[in-house]
Design a binder for these strands. Structure first.
Lengths: 235, 235
DNA sequence: ACATTTGGTGACAATTTTATGACAAAACGA
DNA sequence: TCGTTTTGTCATAAAATTGTCACCAAATGT
């Protein structure tokens, strides 16, 4: 199972449980934001694949956060599993109503948690393809599996496409070569980190057209890795 | 890749495989302890970074050892990869449940083994992320690995970035050059203290824009060192 | 005012880190 | 099976960063 996940729980134990159980977390965060707005901000920032939402968050109720997530374009499609108390039938219904993908009652076994997560992710992988992403003349359309610069189609290899897709769905953030390998190649492939450089180069090259050089959108972060950003470095 | 590893396997071949493949073993041990207690003792003794645990150990079952490892404060965080037979789904789940970080089914290729190990170690090292810090028009965002002055991105070297990050997370306090070297360079590198001065200068320079000079935030504390402060220089 | 200490700067060579072109193995398609 | 494309790695070039110095300026002390 591969998942970059953020757990929104006051319950730190649940996180350990997940890691223990072997869910591949590229990163996680135990959110303890004091209010729904902050939590939402952090989630937008981190772009997790899955959110475990404790209904009884310390300060805000989970429902407020969930509503917010579903309202926001960016987070609308997030997988959300809520954690509820044993026999809180009421909240459970309410939660599903507001848009939770599933729920788990506490206490839960790691086995059950894994099962739910797997099920959810399986379900979601069959979901409609994502919408096309567009930024500054560069458009990536997952459905047709193509990339355009100002309506002009580009040509690139599968890896470059995946790489670009990852970057475009995770803009404005620096990733190490290792992280890119995890996210784009998959965490169970062993290739040299330098290989990333080569593919970055190929991607940059592919993004060049006579009229515009979208390769500039991929910036080198010295000593760290790379970043996709629409903001120029200096001017 | 650097790893001190202990292999708990009856299968000596696996070890040779790893070495052949180039995993840097500072040391390894083919454990053939007759019981879980002994094995645990040896592991505590050796403090490896990673344990390859054969589920079907000659005498004791691996699960007992794994349980023991997870129970002990000292070994709780150890990375454990278990080796299971091809279609032993049951044990695999059980193993992950008890706390294995990952599993590999035998027979496995060295490539796969390397991949898992690398992924596991990568995962375990990236467990922290931070919020962006902002103070008086100057913003440092760890996620994108960038610094802005009034939304204008700045350019600086890795060391300057680290230095600034340290200062911004430790404001209003004077640090000696030695302390800065410890905190920013790491306590195990030997560089001249005056080197700090040079980087301070570089950082100050990098923080200058046409509109504002954020370099002024870094103040010299004569005879002592430097301080990051938003308060104007007075006393 | 003078001597001494401490910090600021520009220059520079060594080192590190990336970019790039080439190439053979592997994957893919016809 | 035979070409073509894609991939991962290297070797090498190109670029950026780093640690030190030498030298200047400012502060301190007597």
């Amino acid at each position: 199972m591969t998942a970059t996940t953020i757990l929104i729980v006051d319950d730190e134990a649940a996180i350990r449980e997940m890691i223990r159980v072997g869910l591949e977390l590229a990163g996680y965060e135990c959110l303890e934001a004091s209010n729904a707005q902050d939590a939402h901000g952090i989630i937008v920032d981190q772009r997790p694949d899955l959110v475990l939402l404790d209904w009884m968050m310390p300060v805000t109720s989970g429902i407020e956060l969930l509503r917010r997530l579903r309202r926001d374009e960016v987070t609308r499609d997030l997988l959300v599993i809520m954690l509820t108390a044993k026999d809180d039938e009421d909240n459970r219904v309410q939660g599903l109503d507001v848009g939770a993908d599933d729920y788990i009652t506490k206490p839960f076994s790691s086995r059950e948690l894994m099962a739910r997560i797997k099920a959810i992710m399986r379900r979601s992988s069959n979901r409609e393809q994502e919408e096309s992403i567009e930024v500054g003349g560069l458009k990536l359309d997952p459905a047709s599996h193509r990339v355009f610069v100002d309506t002009q189609p580009l040509d690139m290899g599968p890896t470059e496409f995946k790489l670009l897709k990852f970057f475009m769905t995770h803009q404005e953030r620096a990733y190490s070569r290792g992280q890119l390998l995890d996210q784009v190649w998959g965490s169970n492939v062993y290739v040299e980190e330098r290989t990333v450089d080569v593919h970055i180069r190929r991607l940059r090259k592919a993004l060049q057209t006579d009229q515009r050089d979208c390769g500039l959108l991929i910036q080198t972060v010295r000593g760290t890795g790379y970043r996709f950003s629409t903001t120029g470095v200096c001017a």
